[in-house]
Design a protein around this nucleic acid. Structure first.
Lengths: 341, 341
DNA sequence: TCCCATCGAGAAAACCTATTCCCACTTTTT
DNA sequence: AAAAAGTGGGAATAGGTTTTCTCGATGGGA
């Protein structure tokens, strides 16, 4: 807390600048905004005065007149978890470049809080709202007929007329599968999260799709459990029992992959020599900390955020409203765990 | 994106409400704000009209008049990492309750970006700024003589006249040490992060302080490395070599603890029977995923955020400006890894 | 040489929305 | 009838932007 000017200094207005430059406020405004006609000398004098006084136009006054606020709301339902942060960063990136500021709120997954925050954002005259969250099943829309455009990022609205931007889970699964086939693996197992998660189902679909094109099936069938290391350990045991000759395991998350890796070590299977391992999320502390650094699928969360922000800005600018679900392609990050054995 | 009203509807102003209720705008304002005197019937009519039209007073106009914006800026230098998020949550909690909204910006650790964002926040007339980041050595002040109060959370300003709120690392280290002594351990090792980090030095100081009170020293000396699992694995090996009879290891982070745990397993030492293990951060995916769930020190990051916000609100309200460094006590979270062996 | 038209510079005023203070008018009370 | 109380309108205000207006100078034509 700087124990400084902030108690004393009245903020400087265009009135002060005009007085200092010896012109009217209207002239001062025109000078500062580079419009209207006046002698170059006058314009320069106003500019100098503004500089001198550290004049900053009050955006409230500007917004009041222009009817715009250059702000958007960002509502997250993930308690700022691991997924929504990169999305937020990407969004901020795209918005910040356009001088748009971001009001942030966290709903703690509470619909009442959420409604309250949306009300507050609308009261503040945000020009648009981005809703982000960890992605499970599609969520209820935050409201029909809101007076501003809304984009869902890393979460999907149940309302088809909303625009949702989510990662391409199926493509990610396919990417992992093709990579494993390309490195000579043919007996690929899959340990992933709960069947209740769309993400888990889609990743599995991507995998099985590619395998069946190659005339293969998932070794030991798809194993659903929860998104934990513990399940990874158990799942690997189950898989080794059901398909002892497995030579690759694709995991639904990096956490699961860590658990799988641990069990593989204990059972004397080397990674990647005996079994190749692919994770999902590219959560670096997990993926890099793994005893054999993990090859993993990166969902490009930042890109999702950027795309959401870009669509929102388009909508604010009056572009025709898009709707439905857009996916952002995933990328494969290669590390030790799938080195050709 | 709701393909709805947002292209058509002019926003409704108090003028519309006044017209609908058949009163002047001054009267409408008084009715809505519960001030002035008028017939109850008139007031009710205005309220009904406002309700009907979904009137929301324009906060820009209100702010312009009141000279207040009820907004604060939150500047983070952590690329929204794991540390600043809980801090932000806590801050938002305390601020949101007071109807204060939060402008978020991420500096990507770039001083130019940071300066730019601070300018933008000031232009938007925020009433205060919270600076948060991962905490290393004290950082440069974001600016002297800013027109608004500033509080640093989870990061420390080099300027002593600034107020910084950081976790009590030394207290956290002491907490861990006392717990280990209380469960009967006497040969306590310490594997932690780089010596360059104040946090690492303070945690070590807390540990050694308690140990020396009990007439003990750190087993195998304090081992500094980086904040990774890999270093945890190495550090544990070094420690087991230097002090083979070690019966407890306090680690500077949960990640390091995971590495340590892995080496202990490989060397045939059981946790907690042979060696007790304490981490730092209470980073749940790490601490719970560890083969023996980790006892760890929680820095109460949310509390740091809440405290920062509370101090900022006080300063905005005109309370005398505080300065210096305030610490928030840490808490010990007990899990399996220190069960009495 | 004189008058009107034109143009340029900058002042003045309207406007955006909501609040607040003051005043005028009406109703009630003494 | 006069004073007091109750109602509600009107205007000022906040800090900008934008449009309109005024004044002086200049130029062209008669």
């Amino acid at each position: 807390m700087s124990n400084s000017a902030h108690e004393t200094g009245r903020t400087v207005t265009i009135r002060d600048v005009a007085a200092a430059a010896g012109v009217s406020i209207g002239t001062a405004s025109k000078a500062l905004n580079g419009v209207g006609r006046m002698r170059e000398e006058t314009r320069a004098r106003v500019m100098a005065a503004a500089e001198e006084l550290e004049f900053r136009p009050n955006p409230l006054a500007q917004g009041l007149l222009a009817g715009r606020t250059y702000t958007v709301g960002l509502v997250t339902c993930d308690s700022f978890g691991r997924f929504s942060i990169p999305v937020m960063l990407g969004a901020e990136d795209a918005l910040g470049a356009g001088q748009v500021s971001v009001f942030m709120c966290d709903t703690r997954d509470d619909p009442i809080r959420e409604h309250h925050y949306v009300e507050r954002l609308l009261a503040r005259r945000v020009e648009g709202i981005i809703v982000t969250g960890r992605r499970t099943e599609p969520r209820p829309s935050i409201g029909r007929d809101l007076p501003v455009p809304v984009v869902y990022a890393m979460t999907q609205s149940q309302d088809e007329s909303d625009l949702s931007i989510i990662p391409d889970d199926e493509g990610g699964g396919a990417l992992a599968a093709r990579h494993l086939l390309a490195t000579g693996r043919t007996r690929v197992g899959h340990v992933t999260g709960p069947q209740g998660f769309q993400a888990a189902r889609r990743r599995a679909a991507g995998l099985t799709g590619v395998l069946s094109e190659a005339g293969l099936r998932v070794a030991g069938d798809v194993l659903h459990g929860d998104w934990s290391e513990e399940w990874g350990r158990q799942g690997a045991d189950i898989l080794l029992h059901a398909a002892p000759d497995v030579d690759a395991i694709f995991c639904g998350s990096d956490q699961i992959a860590r658990g799988v890796a641990e069990t593989l070590r204990e059972r004397g299977r080397r990674v990647p020599e005996d079994v190749a391992l692919v994770g999902f999320d590219n959560w670096e502390p997990m993926a890099l900390g793994c005893r054999t650094p993990l090859t993993t699928v990166d969902m490009n969360l930042g890109e999702i955020g950027r795309a959401a922000a870009a669509h929102l800005l388009d909508a604010i600018a009056g572009e025709p409203t898009r709707s439905g679900v857009l996916t952002v392609p995933a990328t494969l990050v290669l590390r030790e765990s799938t080195r050709r054995g």
